[in-house]
Design a protein around this nucleic acid. Structure first.
Lengths: 209, 209, 209, 209
DNA sequence: GATGAATGAGTATTCATTCAT
DNA sequence: TATGAATGAATACTCATTCAT
């Protein structure tokens, strides 16, 4: 292993160290209440060091969203590439994937809506923004491909696949957010999985002919 | 009209004046970028006066959510109380109602997720929090009642009506939020209405036997 | 006195209170070492209050320069408007005026060179910048008028009056700055007045025919 | 050449490399906006290395002033040592020298006033401070010698030569600074040389009997 | 000597909230 | 009630300097 390579690796390790700390702190306190000092303390680094790896607070935050998008894309593309699955089974596997995405980081879904704020977007480097856009587009495209296949075989209703993918993703994130709200306000038990299952069931019945 | 009553009315008028201004400013700038002075200026009042009517910024913000919940409840209860409508027609009317809720305040749906933050909840007075909880529960119950009726007549699948109402509400807010994200990131045209229609169509097909 | 007027006066009093404190602190520590908190403490106000009266640190600093320019202009215009003085006597009175300007605020001359920095200029409001430019131009014009008169009567060498005013002003500020340097480095006694007198004497001999 | 000597020479080369880079960066951005990293980058060295050659930022900055003082001294001493020049001609040659000093580093004149700040002086090593003082004194003395000679031959007015040298230097730096201010604020054309010429002409007339 | 990653003290500025009038 | 001037706590970010390699 060359010295260059070792340095690269060390650098990436630091980035991850910071991201992990940031995830914990942002999840705990939300974007605005979390301070860079909190994150530095959690990462056992100094505040200044954070800025060696991330341009600013917004960009650090956005990097978290990037992570879940990457995971989502991998999972969804994997569903698509599986051989010998019919549209029905693919939908099942897609739903399983969504459960995992949720498990991967239950709170970051909420955080992703932070990206909306145009103030936020202004502070992101074009490169990061482009990455996020590309990943989103790809993930949505991969989901759409599943629906398209179903439509072709005559199993699913014949709607624009991207539009279907949109509603599917909206349903998923809507449930996650809504259940999060309920949990905080009512301190209810965790019905998320059940609600997701019901939502997916309805969705699937809704798109089948 | 007693002097007491007149005062009460005057007070309520002021509250509304502030809420209207706050809605405009928060919609424009989001919670964090909006300052109390911005709102005071918009309401043509002084900053100090705002605190005579609202305990703090969070509570003022939460009051906006209260408003849309009130509107939602009125619309949904009205659907329920209409005589001579079958479950199918009630679902149709419910969907119409949701369009109106969105039109009533397109951005406040996004804002409602602000309530999630436990930091926010800490700053709300118990009274306001209780009002919000009650309204949410009532509105959800009213939606659930529609599904329950459908299930009884054998039109809809037989699931727990509150669970159905949950998924319905999640779908609605998920679409609104998702479309908002897309609009900001991709600067696409406004597909919201179309996406909502498709989502509702799928949902209805999904719950019908 | 109307309530409006009283408020205006009160506001101006506060501005002066801050300017006086700022002058003391900036003179002591220089622009960069002086903190807004230092100034606030000196003015017996809170840091936030400073920003009600001055846009930022640079603008507060520049306001000090404005003050001496105003004083300079008044003095120089007064020299010009005096009746019955020949060019020679006017030069004498001008020199007297310059001594007073120096006494008015010995350190602020040094500070005026801070205005050069283009970084500084960027942070000034156009209004303030315009005021400074206008005052500078007027003061220089007033000095030039004296030289012009001298040239017309054949007393002084026939050079462009503005150019003469430039060299005169440069000589004055050069001496002040140079003596300030010497004082700090060598901790010598204060020769400023003597050096100024010599410089002015040479200058006057230099421009007389 | 011994190994010791070669090392010494190498070390001096590095110092110069850094000084040249520092001059460029400080001229561009001024003392406060220029960062040690900027300078390191310009010198194609690492930030840490700068500290092997200069105690701190202030001392690096002061070293630039040292350089111009050295140049000034060489030029002025050369004027003095020229044989066969009368006082008049020496003054002429001195003025030429000052033009060259200005050309050598137009911005560093401005920077020399940075040394005034007592904060700055605190951070300089006694050795460097002593060097600067000595050089200043020598340069001033050399200028004074010219005036003294003029006085002895009855050409110039009979004033204390050091005092004359002070006013001469003050005039020079005053013009440079004043023209710099004007250039930035008014974005005028570059009148520096013309103004210097006029100032010197007046000065010479002023000191001649 | 040279490096450059890490440090962490330092500070301008903002803005929710208060309170004397 | 209403005001709005004053408050002062809170915080993102910078950068001179250090030190392990």
């Amino acid at each position: 292993m060359g010295i260059q390579e070792r340095k690269e690796r060390e650098k990436e390790r630091r980035r991850q160290q910071i991201i992990v700390a940031a995830k914990r702190v942002f999840s705990d306190k939300g974007f605005n209440k979390a301070t860079m000092e909190d994150i530095a303390r959690e990462a056992e680094l100094s505040p200044g060091t954070l800025y060696l790896y991330f341009k600013n607070k917004e960009e650090l935050y956005a990097s978290l969203s990037l992570r879940i998008l990457q995971y989502l894309l991998i999972r969804v593309e994997h569903v698509n590439s599986e051989k010998g699955l019919g549209p029905d089974e693919k939908i099942d596997t897609l739903m399983e994937a969504m459960y995992d995405v949720y498990d991967f980081d239950p709170l970051i879904i909420i955080n992703m809506f932070h990206l909306q704020s145009s103030e936020t977007l202004k502070n992101l480097s074009p490169k990061l923004l482009e990455e996020i856009k590309t990943l989103s587009r790809k993930a949505l495209g991969a989901i759409a491909a599943i629906f398209e296949e179903g439509a072709k075989t005559g199993k699913f209703i014949d709607k624009h696949p991207i539009a279907l993918a949109d509603t599917f993703w909206a349903l998923f994130s809507g449930v996650v957010l809504w259940e999060a709200s309920k949990k905080i306000i009512n301190e209810d038990k965790d019905y998320l999985k059940q609600t997701l299952r019901l939502a997916f069931e309805i969705y699937r019945r809704g798109i089948e002919k």
